[in-house]
Structure formats: structure tokens, C-alpha cells
């Protein structure tokens, strides 16, 4: 499970020359890798003089960072207040039960990552489910089920 460490040098160089913060460096690293691989964080500590503990602290404090790879599809349930009063908890609980994962986790087959977000500001569409960046407004449990089934089916027919 080798991770290509080659881009790390360039990321660190740009961080130093543009005087960006460590948070920005980690954001760019995650943009590059899709997550923050342990080896990459260690490589960063070798490239720039920063303790691994500080990088690890940032990576676990801020919710947009993840230390594990995401699933093929990301299901994001908005849990903002407007979505909450319009039934988001029912949808979220249903997805949790059906996928057998909690928010932030990925299914064993690597197909789905379930996440929540505090508010996307698309409150007119609540409850809101975002599947791979596409917004599905006024979602019902039944519709969520159908979406899940069609994605799972597509994955079965077209395994990578």
C-alpha cells in the first residue's frame, strides 16, 4: 500500500514560499491525496521543521480532514437546524442502520462514506442529502433508499 510521496516536496515548497499556514498545507495535501495518509504527514515533518504531533493535532481537530481514505461515494446528510426540524434525523438514522456505519465511517466494501454537515445553507431544500456533491432536496427515507440501491447496483455491474 505504497503512497506516492513525490508531490509532498512541491506542496511543502509552495507552503514555504507562499507563507501559507499549516492548515492550508494540510488542505492542499488532502486536495491532492483525498485524505491525509500517515506516510505523507511523516514526509511533511521531514521536509519542513514541524513536529508530527502538531500535524496530527490539526488533522484530528478540524473536521474537514480525514486520516483514512473515503469510500467511492460520499453520502452527506445536512444536520442543520432547519433540516433537523424537517426530519433529517429520520433520514440519517435510516442510512446508519442500512449501511451499518456511523457518521464519519466508511462501509466495509469501501463503497459508501457517511458524513454529516452542520449546515449547507440550502435550508429551503431540507431535509437535504448530498450524494457525491449532488444535492437531493426534501429527501425522504424512501428516496434515499432508492438512491443507495441504484449506486450499489451500478457498482456491482461496473466493479473497478
Amino acid at each position: 500500500m505504497g503512497v506516492d510521496l513525490e508531490p509532498v516536496g512541491r506542496l511543502c515548497e509552495s507552503h514555504v514560499s507562499n507563507r501559507t499556514s499549516l492548515v492550508m498545507l494540510l488542505q492542499e495535501t488532502q486536495d491532492k491525496y483525498g485524505y491525509l495518509p500517515r506516510e505523507v504527514l511523516k514526509q511533511i515533518t521531514r521536509e519542513i521543521d514541524v513536529p508530527l504531533a502538531r500535524l496530527y493535532g490539526l488533522a484530528t481537530f478540524y473536521r474537514s480532514f480525514t486520516l483514512t481514505p473515503r469510500g467511492k461515494h460520499e453520502l452527506c446528510v445536512c444536520t442543520g437546524t432547519a433540516c433537523h426540524v424537517r426530519g433529517a434525523p429520520t433520514v440519517l438514522q435510516h442510512l446508519q442502520r442500512r449501511l451499518g456505519v456511523s457518521p464519519g465511517e466508511t462501509t466495509e466494501d469501501g463503497l459508501f462514506t457517511l458524513v454529516t454537515v452542520n449546515c449547507l445553507g440550502a435550508c429551503a431544500l431540507g431535509p437535504l442529502l448530498v450524494v457525491d456533491g449532488k444535492y437531493h432536496g426534501k429527501i425522504t427515507v424512501g428516496e434515499a433508499d432508492e438512491l443507495l440501491s441504484s449506486l450499489a447496483e451500478a457498482a456491482q455491474q461496473n466493479p473497478q
Binding site: 514541524v50 513536529p51 508530527l52 504531533a53 502538531r54 496530527y56 493535532g57 484530528t60 481537530f61
Partner: peptide, 15 residues
């Protein structure tokens, strides 16, 4: 560890 000794072997994790 970090501020006084400048080592930074340990840190906070999560929140």
C-alpha cells in the same frame, strides 16, 4: 514539551 522544550513529541488530538 512544545513551547518550553521545543520538542513537540506529544500533542492534543481530536476535540
Amino acid at each position: 514539551c512544545e513551547d518550553v522544550l521545543g520538542v513537540g513529541a506529544i500533542g492534543f488530538a481530536d476535540r
